[in-house]
Amino acid sequence: MKTKIALITGGYTEEAAVSFKSSAFVHSKLDTERYEVYPISIMRDQWFYVNDAGVKFDVNRHDFSLSIDDHQITFDLAFIVLHGSPGEDGRLQGYFDMIGLPYTSCDALTSALTMNKGYTKAVLAGIPQLYLADSVLLFAADRLTAVQQVKDKLALPFFVKPNAGGSSIGMTKVKALDELEAAIAKAYDAAHTGQQVLVEEFIEGREFSRGIFRNLAGDLVVLPATEVKTSREFFDYEAKYIPGLTEEITPADLTEEQDALSTRIIKDVYHKLNCRGMVRVDFFLQKETGRFYFIEINTTPGQTAQSFIPQQVRAFGMTETDFYSQIIETALLTSKTKSEE
């Protein structure tokens, strides 16, 4: 009997469009000999599945089941490919924990923590040879004094971003102080990001992204790095999703020492944040020093054909089909092991 997979997509933020593209790619690569896949869209007003004939079926939120032709469909696993809330901030994970449905991503606590960029940096402080840019975390109550707080504590240029946002939505690189107020307002006002803003000093260097996952044998596997070179001011939303604006080099040109350093640090990050499944860590190698500066961690990374993780999987010598099977089977094994404890 095939394993029934709920492929979770959609979402409550502007990243929903990316989620649909990611889930469509994952669906096309899943092993249909092993898995019976039901794409489930999670939207604010409705949770639903649409069959091949275009008929829509609502999800029963009591147990996350479907009723199709008088048959109740329940799932063995939720494969979460939903960027932003509620699939990346721990809300959906908490719900699945309560109803007892295993899932592929980090748990509720880790997902909630890593969605908060400022809190994540606080947890990661102290990892050997991991550097963190000086920053100011602004809450809703700081809005009137935000500009002065940043001026008092940081040196230009700055990156200003929603503290709980994704896909670089609401993010600005500030090179002059007269640009700061507008940039902070833009970050505060980004939809569904929690009215918190993170301002960081700019680190000049080469930008990289690198995936990591735990395989079925229980080993942590760090994928080949991708170097990001963009014609934009920084790797913003347009650079990420408009073809031709960014050059992505996979595998990246790293020395043996740089490769070993980033591999070790990324494993430390995965351990310290208690991650599960596949995640992606973005970082700078500072131009003058070669130091590893953490940018952010993505616990539900993009999964289109052009996304970093699929690029890195191919560079690693693995097919996406085999990779996703590893993610699914490891999640199922982890769930079985916990239920037997």
Rank of each mutant, 00 (worst) to 15 (best):
I5A: 06
I8H: 05
A16N: 11
S23P: 00
V26I: 15
L30W: 00
E36Q: 15
E36P: 00
P39V: 08
S41V: 14
S41W: 05
A53P: 01
V59Q: 09
H62P: 01
F64E: 08
T74R: 04
F75Q: 01
L77F: 09
P86I: 15
G94H: 06
F96V: 02
F96Y: 04
I99M: 13
L101N: 09
S105V: 12
D107R: 09
S111P: 02
K117Q: 02
L124V: 04
G126D: 00
I127D: 03
Q129G: 03
S135F: 14
V136H: 00
A146N: 05
K153F: 08
L156V: 01
K161H: 11
K161I: 14
S167Q: 11
K175F: 12
E179W: 11
E181W: 06
D189A: 12
A190D: 06
G194T: 10
E200K: 01
I203W: 02
E207K: 05
G211Y: 08
R214K: 15
G218R: 05
L223Y: 10
A225Y: 13
T226K: 06
S231N: 13
A239V: 02
P243Y: 07
G244Y: 08
T250V: 13
T255A: 11
Q258K: 08
D268H: 14
L273A: 06
D282W: 10
Q286D: 15
K287F: 09
T289I: 09
F294D: 05
T304Q: 06
Q306K: 14
V313N: 11
G317D: 04
T319C: 02
D322Q: 14
Y324F: 15
L333Q: 03
T337D: 08
